[in-house]
Structures are given as C-alpha cells and as structure tokens.
Design a protein around this nucleic acid. Structure first.
Length: 284
DNA sequence: CACCATGTTCCTTG
DNA sequence: CCAAGGAACATGGT
C-alpha cells in the first residue's frame, strides 16, 4: 500500500499504538527483508528496546527506539515495497502466510508481512540519505524543481518516479498529478516551462494531500487482506457508504471516459510501468 | 497459460 | 563517466 500518502496514514495510525511499547522478542521469518543487517544483530539491538517515535520520509518509515537507561536512539527503517503491511494484532492470532518479521510486545505483536518480500525492515538507514525533497519542503520551490528537471531528457512521468528528485511519488500519483496539471506524461523533463513546473508541483501536493485526507477519513483495516483494507487508492473522501468507489481520475481507468472531457483514458508503457493519461486534456 | 501489479536496485547498453 | 532501458526480485490476482 505504498506511496507517500499511504505511508503517512500508516505512520499516523501506528505512532500512538507503538509509542511506549517494549519489544520482548523478535521473530525473523524471512531474513531477506533485514538486509544487510544480520538476524542476530537485528534481534540483539531490538530486544528490550522501547518505541519512542515514528516518522515518515518519502515512502519510508523511521522507527525510533531506545534501550532502557540509554540515551542513544536506535533507528529502524521500514519500507512496504509493493505489498507490505505493518500492523498490530493480539498475541494469540495465527500469523499470516507471508509474515516476514514479528515483534512481540506483550499482549500484542507487531507484524510486518509482505507477500512479495520487496519491502524492508532494517537497521541500515542509508537509503534515506539518497532521497530528494519532501513535496512540502519549504526549501523545495518550483524554481528548484525546474532546475532539476532541466538536467534530464527523460519523459516527465519517469522523472517523477525518481526518489532522488522528489520523494514519495509513485506510479499511481505520478499519473494523477500529471493529469491534474494538464501535462503529457511523454513531455521531456527539460522541456517543461517554469510556469508548467509550478502547476506540476502544486498538482503533486494537491493529489497527495487529498489522498492523505481520504485515508484519514475512511474506515481502514490495516490487518485485512481484502482489496480496500488498509488501502485507499480507490477510496473516496468522507465516510460515505460508497467509500471505495473510484476516486482516481486516470489511474487504472483505460478506456473509461475522462472526468474532464469524456474521451477515453489511454494506457501506455514508460520505463516498463503503466502510465494512464487523457491525450486530449494532457497536451505535449 | 499469459499478463498484470502500489517499488527499488543492479546490470547492460549506447 | 553518464543517461537510459530493462531485468530481477517473489507472489498472487485476473
């Protein structure tokens, strides 16, 4: 469930649940997700530690932990990959098939499960240093965005997925933001005007903020495995009965009418990923 | 069986 | 050296 808005909503959900909880023991069922941290080091560092904070950076979660009586804060980095989930469950419930890491917290346990094991839960936090700006970072102006885009001839859609440029945009919200800004996904990054870049940055922020608001409003079951559980790509804001009615404008809507002009939404492949767009509303 | 999937990293090619 | 493209990772859904 993994672009910036989903991770942000998850962080807000988990923060109060984990805060103050002490890790009694750690079960690693798939060592791959800890890499390059070893299972023994992971267990040694985490056992007895207390959760004292939780932050999001891009699509990453940063858990802050502290051993009793110690000053130093230990950082644990989480990433959900494509199919990762993190949630708390009562201690006695059976583990899901793809549980990768389980932290026993007493009455409850913290579960990281991931059907495809593309995600991470590791003490190696080096990935965060490589990230670009947060979309709302005051230091990240349209001018700076524009200068970054100037250095590449790649299609703008592909550049939006570059986490070193701007952190947190994934395949769904890249298409949505470009539709919102009226920019063709095919447009070369270095050929976008400053004025268009301003529209694009505003669109990215708006699309992300609306998704966060949506995810904060609709009922979510983070432990569930049904389609809308813990996800809100397909949610509609406010707790209306039809909350999983399509909310996105173009993503996964190939062949359906554009919400703007009524002409069919198209799908194409860029850098081996699907892009959805309206050829009429998004000119080159 | 074929093809698709919210992400990142590594290898190859030009 | 760099940018760009594609495969790999591993599993499940349609």
């Amino acid at each position: 469930m993994p672009e910036l808005p989903e991770v942000e909503v998850l962080a807000r959900h988990l923060r109060p649940l984990l805060n103050g909880k002490i890790i009694r023991s750690v079960e690693v069922r798939r060592a791959k997700v800890l890499q390059p941290t070893s299972v023994s080091r992971f267990q040694k560092e985490l056992c007895g530690a207390k959760f004292v904070g939780l932050h999001r950076r891009g699509k990453y979660l940063l858990f802050e932990l502290r051993q009793t009586g110690e000053r130093e804060i230990l950082l644990l980095l989480g990433h959900l990959g494509m199919t990762g989930r993190m949630y708390l469950a009562p201690k006695h419930v059976p583990l899901p098939k793809h549980a990768a890491v389980v932290m026993h917290l007493g009455a409850r346990k913290f579960i990281y499960e991931d059907a495809r094991y593309f995600g991470r839960l590791t003490l190696d936090i080096s990935a965060v240093e490589k990230l670009g700006a947060e979309p709302w970072d005051n230091n990240f102006s349209a001018e700076r965005f524009y200068k970054k885009l100037k250095t590449s001839r790649q299609p703008v859609k592909v550049k939006l997925l570059d986490q070193a440029l701007i952190a947190g945009v994934g395949n769904i919200y890249a298409s949505e933001a470009l539709f919102r800004a009226g920019i063709s996904p095919r447009r070369a990054a270095n050929k976008i005007s400053l004025a268009r870049t301003e529209k694009l940055l505003a669109a990215i922020r708006a699309v992300m903020q609306e998704a966060i608001d949506c995810g904060s409003t609709i009922p979510l079951n983070f432990a569930g495995r049904q389609k809308p559980d813990g996800l809100f790509y397909f949610g509609r804001a406010a707790g209306t009965p039809d909350y999983y009615v399509e909310r996105l404008c173009v993503y996964d809507r190939a062949g359906q009418p554009c919400v703007n002009c009524g002409r069919p939404v198209k799908r194409m492949v860029q850098a081996a990923r699907s892009t959805f767009y309206c050829p009429h509303c998004q000119k080159e």
